[in-house]
Design a protein around this nucleic acid. Structure first.
Length: 578
DNA sequence: GCCGTTTTCGGCCCGACTGTTTTCAGTCG
C-alpha cells in the first residue's frame, strides 16, 4: 500500500491536534502543523523518493525528528507517537476541535468537566443547559456551539472558484454603491485563484470613519445575508444564504496595500514575510510595515515588498513555495495571461453533448479574440453523450472543411476527444484518427483501477502515434470525485518523450491538471494547454479560471501550448507523430 | 520541534472580536 504525501500530512495534523489537546508546547504543535502543510505541498511523493534515493531532501521546517517520522510513516503507514497520543485521548475528540468556536482549551474543559468528547455528546450537553455552568462558558456560547454542532451534520464545504466568483461579483456590486467608499477588492484565496475557496475575504477602502460605518450597515443589510456572525467597527463576518461565509474588513486608504497583502495571504506566505521583517527589526501587520512606532510602508502592496528589496509578487504565487526566494533573485516567472491565448483546443457541439453549432462555437471563440478552435467531440464509447463513430466523425470533418473555406481570419481544427479504454487502446481505429488535426485522449471509465494498472493504461494510450494531448489527466471532479490513482510523474515524463501535451481543463468542476502538476509539467519541459472544454458558447468564460490555475502552477506564456500561433501549433502537432 | 547576521539556547507572526469577564482569555483568520 503506497503512502502518499497526503497520508503523511494527515498524520502530522492529527498529532498536532492531539498534542494541542494535551496542552503541549504550542510551538511544538505548530511544528507539526507546518510539517503537514509542507509535506502536503510537495510535487513529488516523499515515500517514492525515499524508496528510490534512500533519503529525503531538506525541507523547510522539517528537521531530524520529523524527517525520521516521515520515514517511519513511509515504512509502516503510521507513526508510534500518533498511536500513543490517540490511545491516551478519548476516541473522536479531535472532531470537537473542528467546530468553530471550540479550541483546545474549551475542548479540554468539556472533556474534563462534562465528559464530552464527541459532537453528539456536545449537542446533548448543550440541550441540557450543562455547558453554561462551565467557567468561561455562558448561555450565548452554549447556543452558538449547539448551532454549530448541528450545522456540522451538513458537512462544511468549500466552494468552487467559479461559484464563489458569482457570489463575490454580486456582493461587490452591492457594496460599491456605498457613499464615501473608495475601493472594494476580493482578497483571500479567491484573489490567489485557488480552485476552491472556503470563504470570501472582502477588503474595503474608505475615506472616513463615517463611510466605514456606512459600509458595515450596507453589508449587514445585504439581501443574501442569512446571519451576521460578528460585527465590529472595522470587521464583520456573515453567512450568505448559499452557506458561503464572507469576512469584510474596512481599512483607511493609507493602509490599503498592507491590508490587501495581509488579507490575500496565503497565511504561509505572510508568515514567511513577517519573519523576514522580524529579522530586520521590523513589524508587519495589516496597517503597514513599522520600524518601532514609525510606519515605513503599506500604502501599496509594492511598498510592502519594497521594504525587503523584493518586486511585487503575483497573488497566485503566494504560497511560500519558493516565490519569495525567486523574487529575491529576480527570477519570478512572467506568468501567462488570459490575453496570451491564441486558441482553444477542446470544445464540443450539438453533434454530441454540446449545445451550439459549429458556426456558433467558431463565432463565439473568435469574439473572445481567439484565432483557432479545435472541435473535439466524444467518441462512440461515451454513449450518454452520443459519441461519434467513424462515419459521423467523417461527416463532421467534412462540415469543418466546408466551414473553414468560408471563414477568413479564423480556423476550426478537426479533432476528437477519444476515449482511452481500460486496456489502453483508443476507442476509434487509426484510420478514423489519421485525417484529424489533433487527437485528445481521455479517460472516462474504470476510475478505480489500481495505481499500477491505471498508470499502465494511460502510458499505453500515449504510445499511439496519433495522440497529441492527454485530457484532464487526473480525472478528478472538484469536491465530487477523487482523482484516479496514477503515477503522474511517469505520465509527465512519457509526455515529454512522446511529444504530447497535457491539458489543463478549465471547466470549473475539473481544473485538471492541478497547480502542483502544472509545475511538475513545467519542470519536466512538457507543454500544457489551457482548454475550456466548452459545451456552449458561454463556456469560453471558464478559460480565465484555467489561466488562474496555470498561473498558480508558475506557467509562463511559452509553457502553454495554445499561446502559440496556428503555424507553430501545427508544427508541434506534427512532431508528435512518428 | 525547528532554527541560527540575537547561532546550540531561547526564541518562535499579529491583531480583532466575543463573551464573560471587572481586565482578559479564547478563538479565529
Amino acid at each position: 500500500m503506497p503512502v502518499h504525501n497526503a497520508d503523511i500530512a494527515r498524520i502530522f495534523e492529527e498529532i498536532a491536534e492531539l498534542l494541542e489537546l494535551e496542552d503541549a508546547n504550542p510551538f511544538r504543535v505548530r511544528a507539526y502543523r507546518n510539517a503537514a502543510r509542507v509535506v502536503g505541498e510537495q510535487r513529488f511523493e516523499l515515500a517514492e523518493r525515499l524508496a528510490k534515493e534512500g533519503a529525503l531532501p531538506k525541507l523547510p521546517g522539517i528537521g531530524e525528528d520529523l524527517s525520521a517520522k516521515i520515514q517511519e510513516i513511509a515504512a509502516t503507514g503510521t507513526c508510534a507517537l500518533r498511536e500513543r497520543l490517540a490511545k491516551r485521548a478519548p476516541a473522536g475528540i479531535t472532531e470537537l476541535l473542528h467546530l468553530p468556536g471550540l479550541g483546545p482549551k474549551r475542548v479540554r474543559a468539556l472533556n474534563r468537566e462534562l465528559d464530552v468528547h464527541s459532537l453528539s455528546q456536545l449537542v446533548r450537553a448543550a440541550k441540557d443547559g450543562r455547558l453554561r455552568a462551565l467557567a468561561g462558558f455562558g448561555a450565548k456560547t452554549e447556543k452558538r456551539l449547539l448551532d454549530a454542532a448541528l450545522a456540522q451534520l451538513g458537512t462544511t464545504r468549500r466552494f468552487k472558484l467559479a461559484v464563489a466568483g458569482e457570489y463575490a461579483r454580486s456582493l461587490v456590486a452591492h457594496l460599491e454603491k456605498t457613499r464615501g467608499l473608495q475601493n472594494v477588492v476580493v482578497a483571500g484565496s479567491y484573489r490567489r485563484m485557488k480552485e476552491t475557496v472556503g470563504d470570501l475575504d472582502i477588503l474595503v477602502t474608505v475615506s472616513s470613519p463615517t463611510a466605514a460605518q456606512a459600509v458595515m450597515r450596507r453589508f449587514a443589510g445585504y439581501g443574501e445575508v442569512k446571519k451576521v456572525l460578528a460585527q465590529g467597527e472595522t470587521r464583520a463576518s456573515a453567512v450568505l444564504a448559499s452557506g458561503l461565509q464572507v469576512d469584510l474588513r474596512v481599512v483607511p486608504r493609507e493602509s490599503a496595500g498592507a491590508a490587501l497583502h495581509y488579507f490575500t495571504g496565503s497565511k504561509a506566505h505572510n508568515i514567511a514575510l513577517r519573519r523576514m521583517a522580524q529579522a530586520k527589526g521590523l513589524k508587519i501587520n495589516e496597517y503597514g510595515v513599522f520600524r518601532g512606532e514609525r510606519r515605513i510602508a503599506g500604502d501599496t502592496e509594492e511598498s510592502v515588498y519594497g521594504v525587503f528589496g523584493l518586486p511585487w509578487i503575483p497573488p497566485e504565487l503566494r504560497e511560500d513555495q519558493g516565490e519569495i526566494e525567486a523574487a529575491g533573485q529576480g527570477a519570478l516567472p512572467k506568468l501567462v495571461r488570459l490575453e496570451d491565448l491564441k486558441g482553444d483546443l477542446h470544445a464540443h457541439t450539438k453533434a454530441t453533448d454540446g449545445r451550439n453549432t459549429l458556426e456558433e462555437m467558431a463565432e463565439a471563440a473568435q469574439a473572445r479574440g481567439l484565432a483557432y478552435l479545435a472541435i473535439t467531440e466524444h467518441s462512440r464509447r461515451v454513449t450518454v453523450a452520443h459519441g461519434l463513430d467513424p462515419a459521423r466523425l467523417a461527416r463532421q470533418v467534412a462540415a469543418i472543411d466546408a466551414l473553414n473555406a468560408r471563414l477568413k481570419t479564423f480556423t476550426l481544427l478537426k479533432g476528437i476527444e477519444v476515449d482511452i479504454l481500460e486496456d489502453g487502446s483508443l476507442d476509434l481505429p487509426d484510420a478514423a484518427l489519421a485525417p484529424l488535426d489533433l487527437v485528445i485522449g481521455a479517460v472516462h471509465s474504470s476510475f478505480k483501477l489500481s495505481r499500477a494498472r491505471q498508470t499502465e493504461r494511460i502510458l499505453a494510450a500515449m504510445d499511439s502515434p496519433f495522440l497529441s494531448i492527454l485530457a484532464h489527466p487526473s480525472g478528478r471532479l472538484i469536491e465530487a470525485r477523487e482523482p484516479y490513482d496514477v503515477d503522474m510523474l511517469s505520465i509527465v515524463r512519457k509526455a515529454k518523450a512522446r511529444g504530447i501535451a497535457l491539458e489543463l481543463n478549465a471547466h470549473p468542476e475539473r481544473l485538471d491538471l492541478s497547480d502542483v502538476h502544472c509545475r511538475m509539467a513545467k519542470d519536466e519541459g512538457v507543454p500544457v494547454c489551457v482548454d475550456s472544454d466548452a459545451h456552449s458558447v458561454g463556456d469560453f468564460d471558464n478559460l480565465r479560471y484555467g489561466i488562474g490555475q496555470a498561473r498558480r502552477g508558475w506557467l509562463e506564456k511559452d509553457d502553454v501550448l495554445n499561446t502559440r500561433s496556428l503555424a507553430a501549433l501545427r508544427k508541434f502537432l506534427a512532431r508528435g507523430r512518428f
